[in-house]
Computed example of a mutant assay.
Amino acid sequence: MQFFQEVTDLKELKKQYRKLAMEFHPDRGGNEKDFVLLKEEYDRLYNQLSKDSRSKDSYPEVIDSLMKYNVDIEIIGSWVWVTGQTYQIRKELKELGFQWAAKKKAWFWHEGEYVKKHKKNFSLDEIREMHETEIVKKRHQPKCLNYA
């Protein structure tokens, strides 16, 4: 590694990348070959650090605590979304750190801090299309009996 020294987390990696990108960008007098090498090293480290951070996070703990409830649990990107009949368990969801998304009519949870960098508001279906989605649990819906 020639560009990123002593980087231990994603936040520090991004901070150093921004600084180095300004220095090595061809439009700012840098060499294109060096900039490409910088970007490749950044991508490699970003993938490695993001995998490491996912393995250390609280996702299993949060999801395990929700499994006893009759709700839909879904991981979209790096967010946990809970839908279904959640009104009765809203206090438990808040204690776990979930927040209510009124327009999406769903609860969401994310590890760490999140800063919105755009003004767009996406529907839950649009978010599903943009990111990898994994359904963790579907709620049990009792079958209706038709008496004819």
Results as ranks from 00 to 15, higher is better:
residue 17 Y to P: 01
residue 75 I to C: 10
residue 92 E to R: 11
residue 69 Y to R: 13
residue 140 H to V: 11
residue 78 S to A: 09
residue 103 K to F: 14
residue 84 G to Q: 09
residue 71 V to M: 06
residue 21 A to K: 02
residue 37 L to P: 01
residue 4 F to L: 03
residue 112 G to L: 13
residue 113 E to R: 14
residue 123 S to F: 08
residue 6 E to K: 13
residue 50 S to N: 05
residue 82 V to A: 10
residue 88 Q to G: 03
residue 2 Q to F: 00
residue 53 S to R: 15
residue 26 P to K: 05
residue 117 K to G: 12
residue 84 G to N: 06
residue 4 F to V: 00
residue 49 L to H: 01
residue 110 H to K: 15
residue 123 S to H: 05
residue 19 K to C: 01
residue 12 E to M: 09
residue 27 D to T: 12
residue 21 A to I: 02
residue 71 V to E: 12
residue 78 S to C: 08
residue 83 T to N: 12
residue 48 Q to D: 14
residue 4 F to P: 02
residue 68 K to L: 13
residue 134 E to W: 10
residue 80 V to T: 14
residue 127 I to K: 07
residue 61 E to A: 06
residue 49 L to N: 01
residue 50 S to I: 04
residue 39 K to G: 00
residue 109 W to V: 07
residue 141 Q to Y: 05
residue 123 S to Y: 08
residue 89 I to R: 07
residue 2 Q to S: 00
residue 132 E to Q: 14
residue 47 N to I: 04
residue 136 V to Q: 02
residue 29 G to V: 00
residue 13 L to V: 03
residue 67 M to I: 14
residue 23 E to M: 13
residue 112 G to P: 08
residue 50 S to W: 04
residue 146 N to C: 08
residue 120 K to I: 12
residue 18 R to Y: 02
residue 86 T to F: 09
residue 74 E to Y: 06
residue 101 A to V: 14
residue 2 Q to W: 01
residue 146 N to V: 15
residue 57 D to G: 15
residue 6 E to P: 01
residue 8 T to D: 07
residue 145 L to S: 13
residue 81 W to C: 09
residue 127 I to T: 10
residue 122 F to R: 12
residue 120 K to V: 13
residue 39 K to M: 03
residue 63 I to Q: 05
residue 30 G to I: 03
residue 89 I to T: 12
residue 39 K to P: 03
residue 57 D to M: 10
residue 54 R to N: 06
residue 52 D to H: 07
residue 9 D to R: 05
residue 91 K to L: 06
residue 64 D to Y: 06
residue 64 D to R: 14
residue 73 I to P: 07
residue 18 R to T: 03
